[in-house]
């Protein structure tokens, strides 16, 4: 039974791409939970499946990609709904009203030929029974809340008239216009400058305090995750390898991949011109996933004969879940000692 505060529950989600050259298991057995009002950061390098996982939630994966199995349960106020097998009507209801999404490149997700205001008005009126004038007032109000100066004037602006940061703010205003209970933000600040990025992250924190929605933040940048996340999931090749409270995962990661990822980041204040601890090798090509633990060819702690044959399952280690045989053994030993 899920705890009361769980908003979204993903169980054994598998999204595969059936290509001519073979099957790409972009998401390969992901288990995650998002609690109400909290921020979950999904962290990983490109190709780890974090975006496909997020898109699977709203069923936005384009063919040849398809959800092969698993469950995605949204716990609404009036009871849980299952999203994996949902029909179009239910999906249309859920999208935007329960779960809204913000993408990396606002210019690609906003219509170029409609004003910001008319796009928000359309979204609001599709989901709620309000008049045009009221929806427009709502749009102006939302633009003001996301920190767009002169909202009454900017509501009639076209996306190209706004700067990158302002566009992303407008996108967030639109996403929040129907008061969703979950906002999925897929690399929302990656295309922005550091200064603008800091402003947008601050805005997300403020809006969360005000509206109380949960946020699923997808990012490759551990620094960004550290700024806003309550909880954190580290993904590698379609699986969650570590999941726990963000502060603890960052302070003392357990999975060798999470450890290596954190070590390889240049961080401010470290002595300059020291060697970075790089992760050896590279992310394997999608058709040639290694057997056993997918990270073992790059892992310094890999155990020959075990990690290359046995696929690790998620084990609870202290305050978090880790998918690594190192901890599997520990747990077994502990049980044996008992």
């Amino acid at each position: 039974m899920p705890a009361d505060d769980v908003l979204l529950e993903i169980e054994d989600l598998r999204t595969h791409f059936l290509l001519d050259d073979g099957v790409v298991c972009a998401v390969d057995g992901v288990d995650l939970r998002v609690r109400r009002g909290e921020t979950l950061a999904i962290v990983g390098e490109s190709g780890c499946g974090k975006s496909v996982m997020a898109r699977s939630i709203l069923r936005l994966v384009d063919p040849p990609g398809q959800i092969e199995g698993g469950r995605i349960t949204l716990h609404r106020q009036d009871g849980p709904v299952e999203l994996v097998g949902a029909d179009k009507r239910l999906l249309r209801q859920v999208r935007w009203r329960d779960i809204a999404m913000v993408f990396q490149e606002p210019m690609a997700s906003l219509s170029l030929v409609h004003t910001i205001g008319s796009q928000i008005v359309e979204a609001v009126r599709l989901h709620e029974n309000v008049g045009k004038a009221e929806a427009r007032e709502r749009a102006i109000d939302m633009l003001e809340r996301v920190g767009i100066p002169k909202p009454r004037h900017r509501v009639d602006a076209y996306p190209f008239e706004l700067s990158g940061g302002m566009r992303q703010r407008a996108m967030i205003a639109m996403a929040l216009s129907c008061r969703p209970s979950l906002l999925i933000a897929d690399e929302p600040t990656t295309a922005l400058d550091v200064t603008t990025q800091a402003q947008i992250l601050e805005l997300l924190r403020d809006l969360q305090a005000e509206f109380g929605m949960a946020i699923m933040l997808i990012t490759h940048d551990l620094g960004v995750a550290a700024q806003v996340a309550d909880r954190m999931a580290v993904m590698y090749l379609g699986r969650v390898v570590e999941y726990g409270a963000a502060e603890q995962v960052l302070a003392a990661p357990r999975h060798p991949y999470a450890q290596a990822l954190l070590r390889s980041m240049p961080r401010l204040g470290r002595a300059s011109r020291t060697r970075l601890a790089a992760i050896r090798g590279m992310v394997p090509p999608p058709f040639a996933r290694p057997d056993g633990c997918t990270f073992h060819p790059r892992c310094d702690s890999a155990m020959a004969g075990r990690c290359d044959t046995v696929t690790p399952s998620s084990v609870v280690v202290g305050d978090r879940e880790v998918s690594c045989l190192l901890y599997d053994d520990e747990q077994q030993e502990r049980e044996e000692r008992r």
Binding site: S163, G165, M166, D193, V194, T195, T196, Q197, A198, Q199, L201, E202, D221, L222, G223, V224, A225, A226, Q227, A246, E247, Q248, L250, A251, L262, M265, R267, L268
Partner: peptide
């Protein structure tokens, strides 16, 4: 100073010590 304050630091301790970014407006 503003640029440095805007850099996200993965150190969870830094988050508690973090001050608001000192920068107004857009580029």
């Amino acid at each position: 100073e503003a640029l440095l304050s805007a850099v996200p630091d993965p150190d969870p301790a830094a988050r508690r010590h973090r001050e608001r970014i000192k920068l107004l407006g857009d580029i």
